[in-house]
Write a protein that binds this DNA or RNA. Structure first.
Lengths: 205, 205
DNA sequence: CCATATTGAGCGAACGCTCGTTCAGTGTAA
DNA sequence: TTACACTGAACGAGCGTTCGCTCAATATGG
């Protein structure tokens, strides 16, 4: 009764949207648990508490589910972009905080495993690849402006290639996080290693 | 007639070994082309010019084929370990040569794709994971001694954590190479970026 | 040195399953 | 009454693996 007129979603539409999200979350969980190719649509349906057929009422194909899962990652990435947004503290401090947060994020197995799963799918599925690259580029762009700011204030090496360096830092963090998963190194050590390496590479000298 | 006595492999054994290698090479090619899970045993057999059944005369399972493919990678890695073996030139020069060669190797799509495929399988298949870690550790160890040598001769920062730094360098190279695949950046630029970043991080100051 | 027995590489149909996807039918909110 | 979320059986294709079989290369006994 309340909001059926004009805008607001009806009870039914709300329920539908909730179902969709349930399925998406179930898919995410299964992809992390068993990998994309090892996960069947039946697994997703079961985990979501829904029939196989109904999955196809909400998504046109298994592939599209993966695409939407990949889009979920972008939302996570926006958090890190906000962390890198223009602000007062010196660049090196912002940088350290970012490295710390990003490593911590990727050191959580489910986040890292999803990233690797997407990395691997991105090679052969163009739309996943594009999403993946776009995400990375956005993050790299934010990081680049932090570095540029650091160069301007004279805090960092003047001859720094901000854009290239930003990408290298991302790769450093991601690689280090992967190592922490397979070799289960403590997260704090990874953070310190990476931070130390990065600040050594960026300092004036 | 020649060597049937005592040791040497008979004609038959030689042919068998050759077939085995054919199948292995076919599998490698298919895994790179289409990915491990998207490749069927029939695809491997077809590419090798052999029947499905015969594949199972040479390998107990598809999984074991992957394991042997992963072992092939170690042979490649040995090449880089030799490059890092104790020698005369200054550490920074050895380092630069290594970075250059390793990036070039990984910038070849088939090498990188195989590495990613294995990375992704290593998460859920323990034996692949162990092989993978062992390979990386070996390379990291060789790189570590180069760095240690550089510290001893006073060429590199004295407070360097050689072991941790070695691993970071490897991750940097691998990450950068992956970026070159998805964004097709020129190899030489990647080499220069990485080399510059690394030498900045390691130099005294 | 020949005749014969043994081996195991090689084949491809077939097995039991799981896959992604479809669809006729049902119940319920609008 | 209409629209549609929802179900689950069914489909055809493909999966990894096994099977009974053939046949050339090898080992063995005379």
């Amino acid at each position: 009764m309340s909001d059926s007129r004009s805008e607001g979603p009806t009870r039914r539409e709300a329920a539908t949207a909730r179902r969709r999200e349930q399925i998406l979350e179930a898919a995410l969980a299964r992809f992390v648990e068993n990998g994309y190719h090892q996960t069947g649509v039946r697994d997703i349906a079961e985990r979501a508490g829904v029939s196989v057929g109904n999955v196809y009422n909400h998504f046109p194909s298994k592939h599209h589910i993966l695409v939407e899962v990949a889009e979920l990652e972008r939302i996570e990435f926006d958090r890190f972009r906000r962390l890198l947004a223009p602000s007062d503290p010196p660049a090196s401090e912002t940088l350290h905080r970012f490295v710390s947060e990003y490593v911590t994020f990727l050191a959580t197995p489910e986040n890292l495993i999803l990233a690797i799963e997407l990395t691997s799918e991105a090679i052969r599925q163009p739309d996943i690849g594009e999403l993946f690259v776009a995400n990375r580029e956005g993050l790299a762009a934010s990081l680049t402006s932090v570095l540029e700011r650091g160069v301007e204030t004279g805090e960092l090496r003047a001859d720094l290639d901000a854009s290239g360096t930003a990408r290298l830092i991302l790769e450093l963090v991601e690689g280090a996080a992967y190592r922490s998963l397979l070799g289960d190194n403590p997260v704090q050590r990874i953070i310190d290693d990476v931070s130390g390496f990065v600040s050594a590479a960026l300092r004036k000298g």
